[in-house]
Measured scan of single mutants.
Amino acid sequence: MEVRTIKVFTTVDNINLHTQVVDMSMTYGQQFGPTYLDGADVTKIKPHNSHEGKTFYVLPNDDTLRVEAFEYYHTTDPSFLGRYMSALNHTKKWKYPQVNGLTSIKWADNNCYLATALLTLQQIELKFNPPALQDAYYRARAGEAANFCALILAYCNKTVGELGDVRETMSYLFQHANLDSCKRVLNVVCKTCGQQQTTLKGVEAVMYMGTLSYEQFKKGVQIPCTCGKQATKYLVQQESPFVMMSAPPAQYELKHGTFTCASEYTGNYQCGHYKHITSKETLYCIDGALLTKSSEYKGPITDVFYKENSYTTTIK
């Protein structure tokens, strides 16, 4: 009895394709271990004539594949690729409408935090270190965002349907971005203890939790000093293409032309909904596939993004 075979390709990165001759009487799992086709788990399936010449994702289970996976995804987590594939199996079914010149995501599976993050990423200057993220990001900007969303979920250790947080998501993504040249110098002034300067680099240099107003941050924000008295913390120097200011959701007025974009969060910790506000020729609110415009805006804002380049204080 002759062994019926077909020729397929296996890959971990969709760049390096490895030619395989597979036995049609055995499952993919018996031949390769966990195997995925377009995100779908085909591990328990036997090869079919229609699979001839198709590319299958496999887990990096030998040295060659491990090197290829690390170079593309910059992670050695053995569960990463499987999590990416199972997320992709959902995100490829989502709709990605162009809204006001940006790629958004039609609401499904509690994905409003991903839509808000995706919209924000198209408006701030950011370059990702893992080629996987950078490639998928370019495709997302062009309207094909399924891979990018699935990668975000995998890097953030999230599953489809789980509630997510924009600030946490951005923080994970910033860790995989090139923020080497970003720098922030802060000064804390206390009447009792004097003053202390701190220099922050990388992710810490672009994120701040405690106030939404970048102007206020430049002037000074009140913080408790270690001595128990009130101290003032203010920005001395900022070198970065953008800054992200966050605070627990509270009524906040966004003035046209003073910011790049913002995240609105309605609801409580267990259950809520994100919308995205962007400042173009007027203010726009993007909620999944829905767009509304207004000249002014007041609502429960939790993150505001500002364009920056270089700032030095005039406070002496």
Rank of each mutant, 00 (worst) to 15 (best):
V3Y: 10
R4E: 15
I6L: 13
K7N: 10
K7E: 12
F9V: 09
T11D: 06
N16M: 15
N16Y: 09
H18C: 07
H18R: 11
D23M: 11
M24K: 11
S25K: 14
Q31F: 14
F32V: 08
F32S: 07
G33S: 07
G39E: 11
G39I: 07
A40Y: 13
T43F: 08
I45L: 12
H48N: 12
S50T: 12
G53R: 13
T55N: 14
T55Q: 12
T55H: 12
T55R: 11
Y57I: 11
V58Q: 13
V58D: 05
P60K: 07
V67D: 14
V67P: 08
E68T: 09
E68L: 07
Y73D: 07
Y73P: 07
H74P: 01
F80S: 02
G82V: 15
Y84P: 03
Y84M: 04
M85T: 07
A87L: 05
N89C: 14
Y96D: 03
Q98W: 00
V99D: 00
N100G: 15
N100L: 10
A108Y: 05
D109M: 00
C112P: 02
C112V: 07
C112H: 08
Y113I: 00
T116G: 08
T116E: 04
L118W: 05
L119R: 06
L119A: 05
T120A: 15
Q123K: 03
I124V: 11
I124T: 03
E125I: 04
E125R: 08
E125S: 09
P130M: 03
P131A: 04
Q134T: 10
Q134A: 11
Q134I: 04
Q134N: 12
D135K: 09
Y138C: 15
A140G: 07
F148Q: 02
F148I: 06
A150I: 06
A150M: 07
Y155R: 05
Y155C: 00
Y155P: 03
C156R: 03
E162C: 04
L163T: 08
G164A: 03
G164E: 04
D165T: 12
V166Y: 12
V166C: 03
E168A: 06
Y172G: 14
L173N: 02
L173F: 09
Q175F: 02
Q175M: 11
N178T: 02
C182Q: 08
K183G: 07
R184G: 13
V185N: 06
L186N: 05
N187C: 14
V188H: 04
V189D: 14
V189Y: 10
K191M: 13
V203Y: 14
V203E: 09
E204L: 06
M207W: 03
T211M: 09
L212D: 02
S213R: 00
S213A: 06
S213W: 03
E215I: 03
Q216L: 08
F217W: 01
G220C: 01
V221S: 03
V221A: 02
V221G: 04
C225K: 02
C225G: 04
T226G: 13
C227R: 04
C227D: 01
K229F: 06
Q237A: 13
Q238S: 04
S240L: 01
M244Q: 02
A247F: 06
P248N: 05
P248D: 04
P248G: 01
Q251A: 10
E253P: 09
E253I: 12
F259Q: 05
C261M: 02
S263G: 01
Y265Q: 01
T266V: 10
Q270Y: 14
G272E: 06
H273S: 01
H276K: 02
I277R: 03
T278A: 10
K280F: 11
T282M: 10
T282L: 09
Y284Q: 12
A289C: 03
A289H: 15
L290S: 13
L290W: 09
L290P: 01
T292G: 06
S294T: 14
S294Q: 14
E296M: 00
G299Q: 00
D303M: 09
V304T: 07
S310T: 14
T312D: 01
